[in-house]
């Protein structure tokens, strides 16, 4: 059965059972690596992606809910050659150890920063609560999200001036 999904701006036909969780369609059919399998039951956040402007747990979201919706994964934020502001911030703050949880963290942070790039540290901590990190990289992740907020504000200011 075919499902039509819009992922990182591209509309794709996927030959998958509509009950398949988005995670497996992203990884297995579309060969995107950002979203990770962590628990499969929505407890750890490693699979977080964005649907529209919201952070969503792709491991518990069947694709049948997503016809016509816009899905963004960490691959949609930038590339190795041209990292986006959030990716840049995570590199600058060296905010990863094993890095397995990081794309999920980034997508939840992206949703937060898109809504309010001036968000404060307390709000970042509260917002990231559903996402687990086992290496203990939390302090750097918080710093990276703060820095990304700054980068985004700078970008939107310079964008506004041009």
């Amino acid at each position: 059965m075919a499902v039509t999904l819009t992922v990182n701006g591209t509309t794709r036909q996927v030959d998958a059972d509509p009950e398949t969780p988005l995670l497996y369609v992203l990884r297995d059919h579309l060969e995107l690596n950002g979203a990770k399998y962590g628990c499969g039951i929505g407890q750890c956040g490693a699979c977080t992606v964005m649907v529209g402007n919201e952070a969503v747990l792709s491991c518990v979201t069947p694709v049948l809910l997503l016809e016509g919706r816009s899905i963004t994964t960490v691959e949609g934020l930038g590339t190795l050659e041209k990292p986006g502001p959030l990716q840049q911030a995570f590199i600058e703050e060296q905010a990863a150890q094993c890095g397995y949880c990081i794309p999920g963290m980034m997508m939840r942070a992206q949703a937060l920063l898109q809504a309010d790039p001036a968000v404060d540290e307390a709000a970042i901590r509260a917002h990231l609560e559903p996402n687990l990190c086992r290496c203990g990289t939390h302090m750097r992740i918080i710093k990276a999200v703060m820095r990304a907020g700054e980068l985004m504000r700078q970008k939107s200011q310079s964008g506004g001036a041009s």
Binding site: N33, A96, Y100
Partner: peptide, 28 residues
């Protein structure tokens, strides 16, 4: 301090983990 060589791949979804390994004809 030197930036870790593995971090750019990890923040861009570049395949780097064994979990990301895909090979022709692979089964799950």
């Amino acid at each position: 301090p030197m930036h870790r060589v593995d971090i750019p791949a990890k923040v861009t979804g570049t395949p780097i983990y064994v979990q990301d390994l895909r090979m022709p004809g692979m089964v799950h």
